[in-house]
């Protein structure tokens, strides 16, 4: 079993392995196998199209959490120049689960902030699996206020299972840290653009995601509680996560239908990790055009429009 591929991608993995084997044979022999390889490659492509054309919500969640999926720092590297990371909340500690700093996007000044997951075990622990503590949110807020002061637009990348549920996090008031960000972001006089690049885990995601323009990558998810959490509460079994994911509507298409995001940024066939550079290019072009648009709007008008957006969220009757 190839760990690069998820369970439901195993048929693709087998085909890819065959292709590799043929290539290996072809280099050492006189026989021309290119026709056969070409045939298998197109078969692999159409198989991938087929599988990805009808992913369930739970399968999308697995792509969103794929161990090879590009993380915030990967996109920062691919999209921006002059990234200068800034650290710490000035009160308690620097939280490596949130990164942020000044950068340039096509020459323009921006502040970039995002949750950061780790790649290998050591890195994962260092980044606390992308689960920020209060000091992480307070660092983010500090950077946002700094950006506002110089009217530098803010770009945030959302990728977290959720805010960290720990003893110290509660002692330092995780609730207040998140609430304060929601409060301050609502009246920030500089453009904010947010992109959900992987997992949008609840309040821990929203705390850096109150924006003038909110986008989701095609195979990212965004939810009020993790599918596992919802399943263990409502279905009394974490095993029912797939059902919960479907019931809550965590995928970009379902959330777009609800009118809660502005756009879906397409991913390459098979997901962002199959071609990180292409994904980064897609994000970059959407960031640029929205930045262009929002930069023309005055601070007052921005806050006014953001407020109206927030007030429209909800479905009820009377």
């Amino acid at each position: 079993m190839n760990l690069d591929y998820l369970d439901f991608e195993q048929p693709i993995a087998e085909l890819q392995q065959k292709i590799e084997e043929l290539r290996h044979v072809a280099t050492g022999s006189e026989v021309n196998l290119s026709e056969e390889i070409g045939r298998l490659e197109s078969k692999s492509r159409s198989l991938t199209e087929d599988i990805f054309g009808k992913l369930t919500s739970w399968q999308v969640a697995q792509v969103a959490r794929h161990p090879r999926r590009p993380y915030t720092l990967d996109y920062i590297e691919a999209i921006f120049t002059d990234f200068t990371e800034l650290h710490g909340d000035r009160a308690f500690r620097d939280d490596p689960a949130i990164v942020g700093g000044l950068a340039r996007l096509d020459g323009r000044a921006v502040m970039v902030i995002g949750q950061q997951k780790g790649r290998d075990t050591k890195d994962k622990l260092h980044r606390n699996f992308g689960m920020p503590k209060p000091e992480g949110y307070r660092k983010a807020l500090r950077l946002m206020k700094l950006a506002e002061r110089f009217r530098v637009p803010i770009i945030t990348f959302i990728d977290t299972p959720g805010a960290y549920p720990g003893i110290g996090a509660e002692e330092r008031n995780q609730s207040e840290a998140i609430a304060r960000n929601l409060f301050e972001l609502a009246r920030l006089r500089t453009p904010v653009i947010s992109v959900v690049i992987g997992e949008g885990g609840s309040g821990g995601a929203l705390a850096i995601g109150v924006a003038d323009h909110l986008a989701m990558l095609q195979y990212s998810i965004y939810s009020v509680i993790s599918p596992e959490g919802c399943a263990s509460i409502l279905y009394r079994s974490a095993e029912k996560a797939a059902e919960a994911a479907d019931a809550m509507g965590v995928t970009s298409s379902r959330i777009y239908e609800l009118g809660l995001i502005d756009e879906i940024i397409p991913e390459p066939l098979g997901g962002a990790h199959r071609d990180p550079q292409a994904t980064a290019n897609n994000i970059r072009s959407r960031l640029l055009s929205n930045l262009e648009r929002l930069s023309q709007v005055s601070g007052n008008k921005l806050v006014e429009a953001r407020y109206d957006r927030l007030m429209r969220h909800g479905r009820f009757k009377e």
Binding site: A179, L185, A186, V224
Partner: peptide, 9 residues
């Protein structure tokens, strides 16, 4: 679902 999350903001 997410509509509830958005009530926070």
């Amino acid at each position: 679902g997410l509509l509830s999350l958005m009530q926070m903001s």
